[in-house]
Amino acid sequence: MQKSTPTSIPDLIARWPTIAQFSVDVGCGYEAARQMRRRGSIAPEHWYRVVSACKKRDIQGVSFEWLASQRSEMAA
Rank of each mutant, 00 (worst) to 15 (best):
R37S: 14
A76Y: 03
W47C: 03
M36D: 02
R37W: 01
G27D: 10
L12Y: 11
W16A: 03
R37D: 03
T5M: 13
R38K: 15
T5S: 15
K3R: 07
P17Q: 14
I42P: 03
A33D: 00
K55W: 06
W66F: 13
R57T: 00
W66V: 04
R15P: 10
V26C: 10
P44T: 08
M36G: 09
V26M: 05
A43K: 13
L67A: 01
G29E: 05
Q2Y: 15
A53D: 03
E65K: 13
A43C: 04
F64H: 14
W16E: 07
S8E: 08
G61T: 04
A68V: 01
A20N: 11
V50D: 03
R38T: 14
E45M: 11
M74R: 10
K3W: 03
T7S: 15
S69Y: 02
T5L: 07
K56E: 15
R34V: 09
M74E: 11
T18L: 14
T18M: 10
L67H: 06
P10S: 07
S63H: 04
E65D: 03
S72T: 11
P6V: 06
A20G: 14
I13Q: 02
C28R: 03
M36S: 07
T5G: 07
S63V: 06
S8I: 03
A14T: 09
K3M: 04
P6Y: 10
K55Q: 14
S52N: 11
E65C: 00
C28Y: 02
S8L: 12
L12W: 11
R34Y: 13
M1L: 14
R37T: 09
A43T: 11
V24P: 00
C54R: 05
T18A: 13
V51G: 04
E31T: 15
Q70R: 13
R49W: 04
E73T: 05
W16P: 09
R57V: 00
R15W: 09
Q21A: 14
Q60S: 05
I19K: 05
A14Q: 12
D58Q: 15
S52F: 13
A68D: 11
S69V: 03
I59D: 00
V26Y: 08
R57I: 01
Q70E: 12
C54S: 08
T7K: 15
S63C: 01
I9Q: 05
W47F: 12
A20P: 02
G61V: 03
C54D: 04
V51Y: 02
R71P: 00
V62M: 01
W66N: 09
E31P: 02
W47Q: 02
R39P: 01
S72R: 10
I13K: 09
A76G: 01
I9G: 05
A53W: 01
R38A: 15
F22Q: 00
S63E: 03
R49G: 00
R34G: 11
